[in-house]
Structure formats: structure tokens, C-alpha cells
């Protein structure tokens, strides 16, 4: 009974998500879902795979599938501005992790990067697809052995999970060399980012999905990026990213979740 409830919950949670890229509850382990995903996300556009324009760093084996650190880097030799970055985990219930649309404060003239922590539900390819100014798509991918990140309850202490929900920390870090035009930043938000696939055994009901779906980062009023997110991002979403130096290097971060709740924070003075 318990297991059938869990399965039911899993399917119900997945079905409740009307996301464009949703492929169904669970992709079969041996099924190559990328061609379909690619078609849905980019149509017939060509993608240059592993051309060195984008680098994906993620452990080959995830120790904790609910909290896998992931970093996407754009090497310094790439001079173009960036249009967008989309991260996929092929076998996750919702394979799209996040899409970033970059604005004028994204920065150029150095290495750019974006890091977060993700849930990985199954042994899967993880992909980063970067769209450069010229409209060309570049992809880096890596296979990760990890299982049970999404269906598992990530909260080690569920009763404390919603304590302080919405608390944010935004920090900026100046470059090591004053001459570098690229700064980095960290955004943290206390949020369960629940995926609607966890069963509350006490009520025999699925814990409703509630996750951060939009984040807008601005530097001195100019857009660094807009992000669309999904529940493939781990509990207490955590981002590190770069932005371009400006006259005023303080950041404003606005976040909304799927319940329509809005959260906002400004960076602490840099270096703290």
C-alpha cells in the first residue's frame, strides 16, 4: 500500500507539472531522450557539441543525488556576449533545470560562470547549452551516476524546512585583480523547492510542488540575467555566477516561486 501510494504520488506530482519539456513520469534508463528534448527546446537548430565554448563541471558520481554541485564555465577566450544558457538533466522528471537569459550587465572580458546544486533522479546525461550573440548553440555534456534525488525527500529535518522560508543572502566578490572586469556573486534562498513527488506519510498525500521558478538579477538597474528554474534545483537554492563590473556593483535579486510568493534582496557590501 505504501509503495503504491508513493508511485501514485510520483506520477501525480509529475502530471501536475505542465512544463513544456515534460516527457512523462520517468524516462527509461536505456532510452535516449535527448533528440526529443533537443527538438522541443531548439527545434531544428544545429548544436555544436563539445566545441570548447562552454565547459560543464559536475562529479561523475554524485555522493548525494539530492545535492549535486554543477558549474558551467565560458572560457575567457570567448569574447562574445551571451544570449542564453539552458541546463538539462535528461532523465529527470522535468529535464530542464534552468534557462538563463543574459542582459547588458552580464560582463565580458574574462571567464564567466554559473553554478548551482541540482537533484539527479537517475543515471543521466547532464547538458549545458549556451547560445552566443551570433545565435550559435554550443553544448557540453557529461554522464553522471546518481540515483534517487527527486523522489527522495531531501529534507533531513522536514519540520525545520519551512522555518525562515524566503530568507535570502546575496554577496558580491570583487575580482582578485583590480583590472579584471568580471565580478562574482552568490545568491542563497531558504526555500524547500519541493517537487511534488514526496509523500507525506501522515496524511498519505503528496506534498504539493512549490519551487523557485523565476529569478531576476540586476546590477545598478541593469539586467545581469533572468532565470526560469524548476524543481531540479536542490532545496535551499544556491547560485554563484559572474557579472560585469559597473559604476555601482551592488546587486538586486528578485525571486518568485510557483505559489506566487515574491522575495527580494540586495547584496551585502562586497567582501562580506
Amino acid at each position: 500500500m505504501l509503495l503504491s501510494l508513493t508511485r501514485l504520488g510520483y506520477a501525480a506530482g509529475a502530471a501536475a507539472l505542465a512544463t513544456v519539456l515534460l516527457l512523462g513520469p520517468v524516462a527509461k534508463a536505456d532510452e535516449d531522450v535527448w533528440p526529443a528534448l533537443k527538438q522541443q527546446a531548439f527545434g531544428d537548430r544545429a548544436i555544436q557539441a563539445e566545441d570548447g565554448m562552454v565547459v560543464l563541471e559536475i562529479p561523475g558520481t554524485a555522493e548525494d543525488a539530492a545535492l549535486v554541485p554543477l558549474t558551467v564555465r565560458v572560457p575567457p577566450r570567448v569574447a562574445q556576449t551571451l544570449k542564453s544558457l539552458t541546463i538539462f538533466i535528461d532523465k529527470n522528471p522535468d529535464p530542464k533545470v534552468a534557462t538563463l537569459h543574459f542582459g547588458p550587465a552580464q560582463g565580458t572580458g574574462g571567464e564567466r560562470s554559473f553554478s548551482t546544486r541540482v537533484r539527479i533522479d537517475n543515471f543521466s546525461y547532464v547538458r549545458a547549452v549556451l547560445e552566443t550573440e551570433d545565435g550559435v548553440l554550443h553544448m557540453a555534456s557529461k554522464f553522471v551516476a546518481a540515483a534517487g534525488g527527486c523522489g527522495a525527500m531531501q529534507a533531513k529535518d522536514p519540520d525545520s524546512e519551512t522555518v525562515g522560508l524566503g530568507k535570502m543572502i546575496v554577496k558580491t566578490f570583487p575580482p582578485a585583480l583590480d583590472a579584471s572586469p568580471i565580478w562574482s556573486a552568490q545568491v542563497m534562498i531558504k526555500h524547500p523547492n519541493s517537487n511534488g513527488m514526496q509523500l507525506d506519510i501522515n496524511t498519505a498525500k503528496v506534498i504539493p510542488a512549490r519551487y523557485v521558478d523565476q529569478m531576476r538579477v540586476k546590477r545598478g538597474g541593469e539586467l545581469v540575467f533572468d532565470m526560469d528554474g524548476t524543481f531540479s534545483i536542490s532545496t535551499n537554492p544556491n547560485f554563484r555566477f559572474t557579472f560585469g563590473r559597473g559604476a555601482d556593483n551592488s546587486l538586486d535579486v528578485a525571486i518568485t516561486d510557483t505559489d506566487g510568493a515574491k522575495f527580494a534582496a540586495q547584496s551585502e557590501p562586497s567582501g562580506f
Binding site: 505504501l2 509503495l3 508513493t6 508511485r7 534517487g148 527522495a152 525527500m153 509523500l199 506519510i201 501522515n202
Partner: peptide, 15 residues
């Protein structure tokens, strides 16, 4: 215990 084990049961059994 019931909540903790119940929500992890499927994963524990599979592993």
C-alpha cells in the same frame, strides 16, 4: 520514523 522511512521506502528498496 514512519514519515522518514515512508518517504524514502522506494529508494531504499531499490538500492
Amino acid at each position: 520514523l514512519a514519515r522518514g522511512l515512508g518517504s524514502r521506502a522506494e529508494r531504499y528498496l531499490a538500492i
